[in-house]
């Protein structure tokens, strides 16, 4: 099994509530790029949480990097987490830490040497256009800037698997396009990407498979093979090849 993620008849309920997810089965191949859509409350965030190991399903089998997470000892999930990057729905930046320290966090928790941390983090912050805001605390940054900090934090440790929960939710189309471009770039380096969104403009005709959640059920539409057409063009953004924010 060379799937990065595999779900078999997964169900999820919160407490004694109804099943939010029912009989979800799918698999993600390495290097694929998927959108996850569905109306608000459909369970997109819940499905992502199961995939980034923040939530256990109520039933069914979940394999991540080939490991059955229901039988994997808790201490072994750590190495899986470290191969996963997450852009949370509300960013969830640590507000008392600078942009730099927020982005450095995934490296620091692995105990990497501070000199290496500095080099990588500075590089990435320059790359996402936050060169002049490294020492700023998130509350003093604009929504778009916070978003870029969140994305930088998600990708700093070069994850093999990247999840973004409505990463373009609160920004205008232009910034959304740039963010998408960043994810594409990352995908080209081999990272498997799943992006939850209800932005139709983004998913329609993107050429990427779309996982659609509705009434607790999952339907996958679009080409099953990875075929990336830059969503940049669909959104009518500029045609620059480099990332600029």
């Amino acid at each position: 099994m060379n799937d990065i993620i595999r779900f078999e008849n997964v169900g999820l309920r919160y407490g004694i509530g109804p099943e939010v997810l029912q009989d979800i089965s799918f698999d993600l191949k390495p290097g694929s790029f998927h959108f996850l859509t569905g109306p608000s409350g459909a369970g997109k965030s819940s499905l992502l949480k199961i995939m980034y190991l923040a939530l256990r399903p109520s039933r069914g089998l979940v394999y991540i990097f080939g490991h059955d997470i229901s039988t994997l000892p808790r201490k072994n999930t750590l190495s899986l987490r470290r191969r996963i990057g997450v852009v949370f729905q509300e960013f969830r930046l640590l507000s008392h830490l600078s942009a730099f320290d927020n982005v450095a966090l995934p490296l620091r928790v692995t105990g990497i040497r501070e000199a290496n941390v500095r080099k990588h983090v500075e590089e990435l912050l320059v790359w996402v256009g936050l060169k002049d805001h490294m020492d700023a605390r998130p509350p003093t940054l604009s929504g778009g800037q916070q978003q870029r900090v969140a994305i930088a934090r998600a990708v700093i440790a070069r994850p093999k698997l990247l999840f973004a929960d409505e990463p373009t939710g609160n920004v205008d189309d232009q910034i959304a396009a740039r963010i998408m471009h960043l994810f594409e770039e990352l995908n080209k380096t081999g990272t498997t990407v799943v992006i939850a969104t209800h932005n139709k403009a983004m998913t329609n005709g993107s050429g990427c498979p779309v996982m659609k959640l509705e009434g607790g059920l999952l339907k996958i539409t679009g080409p099953m093979k990875k075929k990336l057409v830059s969503v940049r063009h669909k959104l009518g953004d500029d045609k620059k090849a480099t990332i600029e924010f």
Binding site: L53, A54, L94, P106, V109
Partner: peptide
Amino acid sequence: RETINVLHVIGAH
């Protein structure tokens, strides 16, 4: 809680 969850998800031991 919020900070702990974030640290946990990003791979803090």
